[in-house]
Design a protein around this nucleic acid. Structure first.
Length: 819
DNA sequence: ATAGGGTTAG
């Protein structure tokens, strides 16, 4: 809202200036006024405010043609205010653009990364016209765009053509050489070259040299401490140090993850008081390392000493608040900035507002983040990406998608956020489509984008596609990527190939708690409950702190392995040992674990210890447990609560009907079934009955009857008979006894309803197409089971799942491409 | 007109 004032301010000024401009008869005065006016526009520039165009139009309308120095100044102003197209327009109107205009444009193109256009201008300039500054700009352009070799080659060309390099040239060339330097020896050669050139005493050149050492120190294959030591010696030997020399060393330590050394250097004295950049570097260093307290402490010192705080300070400290969840402090900072920065330039407000957008959504206020976004006078890609992440993170996929479509430009991060957001919110197919679309549009995927696509495959259970992505990932050189590796572990596990997940986990260059959690979950989901718990213990032994997800995973593993005591113990240790407050999800799992084991008394006492009212997940766990053990009163009570809390949810009907089935109360089963049909929930996911096109009906096996596999057979057989008694005649009888069953692989499945589909498939004619309900994904265990089935019964099975086809033949599966 | 340090999106 504050920006509203500045807008009025500049509108008033606009009329005054126009008045003054038209009153200026002297062309030079007029030119200067136009330039000042444009300068004002730069400060006020916003997407909706295009005064500079108005000024430009005014110039043309009044027949004023800027030339020479004035024109160059205008071009420069346009370039600086990111209105490169206007600058180019002016440039193209000059019959013979001079070297200054050319230099300005080259560096502007360099800044936006358009080397092609920069080169075009460079090559279109005759040797006669060129000068040292012109060469410097082009060398810098190459250097800024990571083409060190081209920069060095151009430097040679410059020497060949007898242009004498100046300190700017050396600084730029050293920057370029730093790009190609791979080890300490290269840096030393660089050092020698500097000494030979006679610039070994020039502060700016030495700063560049120090910066080269620092950059080289960050590359993975070198010893960073030795290179930082060399940089430090250079610094110590300097005759004259400026602010930059100090900050280069500090950021060097920070970048090389040695915050203690940075702090020691920082505190060591000799630095001038007002070195805001150095303070900012320290704060951002602490921020990135997750040392939020230290970052805040530095910020406090800065604030109390009355130092100038700039946009970098604010952005970093707001990020601290966003990452650490200090919402109150973040809000106070927001208010403080609004109060103290009366008329902020876009250079100030843009990054600060971007950080604020992130602060608000991370603290669960997506709508407030949106409000800030809406009020922003200038937005850039970062702003858009920040809010997109907000929507995705809040699971507001519809809004995310329309926001995504609205975006004026996108980068790889935009795509990645959207792809993984879709994958994690149940729109995996859309995620994969987007990944392909992104590649078609020429965006080179990064490892995070791969991770998103791989997650989609995990959700869909499309193993072949997942494997293809794995191969592509290696081709792109991301085989040591942590995020992609973690996604792959989950993908292989969910597609039933635990061995692949395991060998990946064991060979990954580095792993984090996410990797451990993924691997523990992989083992747990495939019936290797004991190994899952062993792995969890191993993780603890390695000194890796478990997080909320670790406990969810390990509680599930205990549940599947029937390790009730162990699970209960882990649950109790969550807060007492690791200080993690259990959430409702943890309570639900431990109650589920206890109920499954028939320990309803313990479950009840856990429930009573809950700090809040039991929600849906708790009642679901209770119902599931009651169903297994046929505890009718508790089950019915839980179902009633669930009908109240979540009336539209079909799962309750399913559980209730299964509970009656376990108790042999087939009339009640039929009643619930009728109720379901009346409510139209028949075709919802998780429905007990699956219709297949050949009119086979399969009653779902539930993990209720696990882990005794033979009980499954008997149970199904019994069901078959009971169904017939009720007058319900399935087209095919369940023939399960003649089937080999590998208990290890499938018995402890969590996706037992999908397993049931597999059972049903056995009895279908060769090549039959089975329609599986739209939202029931063929994945993980089911995938594995059908593969197994196709081998055992020696027949080809085609399963249609939504728009996709899975062909199972002789134990292998190929998936039909649908995009 | 050109260089060198610090910020924000997963």
């Amino acid at each position: 809202m504050r920006y509203g004032h500045s807008l009025t301010f500049s509108i008033t000024n606009f009329s005054i200036f126009t008045f003054l401009v038209t009153r200026s008869f002297c062309s030079k005065a007029r030119a200067n006024r136009y330039a000042s006016l444009l300068q004002l526009c730069c400060l006020q520039s916003s997407i909706s405010c295009s005064f500079d165009r108005a000024v430009h139009a005014h110039m043309i309308a009044s027949g004023f043609r800027p030339r020479g120095h004035t024109l160059n100044r205008l071009i420069n102003i346009y370039c600086k205010s990111s209105k490169l197209a206007y600058a180019r327009h002016l440039f193209d109107e000059i019959p013979q653009p001079d070297i200054v205009a050319r230099t300005t444009l080259i560096s502007a193109y360099s800044a936006i990364g358009d080397l092609k256009l920069a080169k075009e201008i460079f090559n279109g300039t005759l040797l006669l016209m060129r000068d040292t500054v012109f060469y410097n700009a082009m060398i810098t352009a190459y250097s800024h765009n990571n083409d060190g070799h081209a920069a060095i080659e151009l430097f040679r060309d410059m020497r060949r053509n007898d242009f004498s390099p100046d300190n700017f040239t050396f600084t730029s060339v050293i920057g370029a050489l730093a790009l190609v330097a791979e080890n300490e020896r290269h840096c030393q050669q660089l050092h020698c070259a500097v000494v030979k050139s006679g610039t070994g005493f020039v502060t700016s050149v030495l700063n560049a040299l120090i910066s080269a050492y620092v950059k080289c120190a960050s590359s993975p294959s070198v010893s960073s401490s030795s290179l930082m030591g060399a940089a430090r010696r250079l610094f110590d030997d300097m005759v004259e140090r400026d602010e930059l020399s100090w900050t280069t060393i500090i950021t060097g330590y920070v970048k090389n993850d040695d915050l203690d050394a940075a702090r020691e250097f920082f505190d060591g004295g000799g630095m001038c008081e007002e070195m805001v950049v150095a303070w900012n570097a320290m704060i951002s260093g602490y921020m990135h390392r997750g040392l939020y307290k230290e970052a805040l402490e530095m910020f406090r010192k800065m604030y109390l000493s009355g130092m100038r705080l700039d946009e970098f300070t604010y952005t970093s400290i707001i990020s601290v608040c966003a990452n650490a969840g200090f919402f109150q402090l973040g809000k106070e900072l927001h208010a403080y900035i609004l109060k103290t920065e009366v008329n902020p330039s876009p250079d100030f407000s843009l990054p600060v507002n971007n950080a604020l957008v992130t602060l608000y959504w991370r603290c669960g206020r997506v709508d407030e983040a949106r409000e800030i976004f809406n009020y922003m006078p200038v937005k850039d890609l970062v702003s858009w990406n920040a809010l997109l992440s907000g929507y995705v993170n809040a699971g507001r996929i519809n809004e995310a998608q329309s926001f995504f479509k609205e975006m004026p430009e996108k980068n790889i991060l935009t795509w990645t956020v959207m792809i993984s957001g879709l994958a994690q919110n149940g729109f995996a197919e859309e995620g994969l489509k987007l990944f392909n679309q992104m590649k078609i549009l020429g965006f080179e995927p990064c490892d995070y984008a791969f991770a998103g696509a791989i997650t989609s495959c995990a959700v869909l259970g499309t193993l072949e596609h997942g494997r293809q992505l794995h191969a592509q990932l290696i081709r792109f050189g991301f085989d040591s990527s942590l995020s992609a590796g973690n996604a792959l572990i989950t993908m292989y596990a969910r597609c039933g190939v635990v061995e692949a997940a395991e060998s990946l986990f064991l060979t990954m260059h580095c792993v984090d708690s996410v990797s451990w959690n993924a691997m523990i979950a992989a083992l747990g989901q495939h019936g290797h409950g004991i190994q899952a718990i062993e792995l969890f213990e191993e993780m603890l032994a390695e000194g890796i702190l478990p997080d909320r997800i670790s406990f969810l995973t390990v509680l599930s593993a205990c549940s599947h392995a029937g390790l009730v005591e162990k699970g209960h113990h882990y649950f109790n240790s969550m807060y007492s040992v690791y200080g993690i407050t259990p959430g409702e999800d943890h309570y639900a799992r431990v109650i589920d674990l206890l109920c499954r084991a028939g320990k309803f008394t313990e479950a009840k006492s856990v429930m009573e210890s809950m700090p809040c009212e039991p929600g849906v997940s708790i009642w679901e766990a209770l119902l599931a447990g009651s169903r297994i053990h046929g505890i009718m009163d508790i089950g019915i009570k839980a179902a009633e609560r669930l009908f109240e809390l979540k009336p539209e949810h079909d799962g309750t009907y399913v559980q209730l009907s299964n509970m009656y089935a376990v108790a042999g109360r087939w009339v009640d089963v039929a009643k619930v079934r009728k109720l379901m049909r009346d409510r139209g929930v028949k075709k919802e996911p998780g429905c007990s009955w699956l219709e297949v096109e050949s009119m086979v009906h399969v009653f779902l096996v539930d993990d209720a009857v696990h882990p005794e596999v033979h009980a499954v057979y008997n149970y199904l057989d019994q069901l078959d008979q009971e169904m017939r008694k009720l007058g319900y005649v399935p087209d095919t009888k369940f023939v399960l006894h003649d089937m080999e069953f590998d208990q290890k692989e499938y018995a402890l499945s969590t996706h037992s309803e999908k397993l049931a589909v597999a059972f049903g498939l056995m009895k279908l004619p060769r090549g039959a197409t089975v329609r599986v309900f739209k939202n029931l994904r063929i994945c993980g265990d089911c995938h594995n089971a059908i593969k197994y089935m196709s081998k055992v019964v020696g027949r080809e099975i085609v399963v249609r799942d939504g728009k996709r086809f899975h062909h199972f033949r002789n134990g292998e599966c190929s998936c039909g491409n649908y995009w």
